[in-house]
Amino acid sequence: MNFKKLMMTAAAAVLAFGVGSANAGEPLRVGVEGAYPPFSWKEADGTLKGFDIDFAYAVCEKMDRECVLVEQDWDGIIPALLAKKYDVIIASMSITEERKKKIDFSNKYYDTPAKLIAKESTSLMDNNASLTGKRVGVQRGTIHQCYVEKFFPDAELVMYATQEEVFQDLAAGRLDAQLSDSIQGQEGFLETDAGKGFAFMGGDQNDVECMGEGAGISMRKGSDELLAGVNNAIEAIRADGTYAKINAKYFPFDIYGSGS
């Protein structure tokens, strides 16, 4: 009897606390990738670093919740969110219509264009005719996969689990070109030793259907309170200079892009 009473009291307390405080104080579990420098990567000692990681900690701080980072491979990052392995994803995920059917997005937190990378000396151009039969690498399940399938349907699409593997095979000469985020391509590949002799090919690759409206924080559908909290946090980070500070740590220019 005593035990039952105790349980009732505990349940009531949890209920009251949960409703009253809207999860404040409870840790926020953040899904991150860890294989996408300079946005996220893993140091030799296992700690996660990068723009996304710093940004995630800033969001948690503004929401007054403890951050628990959960690493997840990219191609399972949405399924794992749906399976409640974490509450939000902060992993440079672009806000696209296709993804919005499955999950909700915050406002964007940065927006940079996608570009192709190929050998400096290449004669290839960024159109379907020129890339016909050529091997074009992308990371599986990205906006870039969508873009290549839509605009270069006659190219041979080669898919990888991580963006690092795409660069590795481009450097090894197994790919004729690859499509990825321009900043990530610049800092994660072209400025490294492996990227010597390679350069951007063609201009920015834009398409709202595939590329969406910039990178946002995503969560399960129906998390309206969480969504409002995250959007407020992004706004606060932008307003109080935290964003500029994190931005300057990784990039010499503003990656937020135009618009709101």
Partner: peptide
């Protein structure tokens, strides 16, 4: 199978 999951964000 992984392509299909990645393309349509399925588990």
């Amino acid at each position: 199978g992984r392509w299909l999951n990645g393309r349509y964000y399925l588990a």
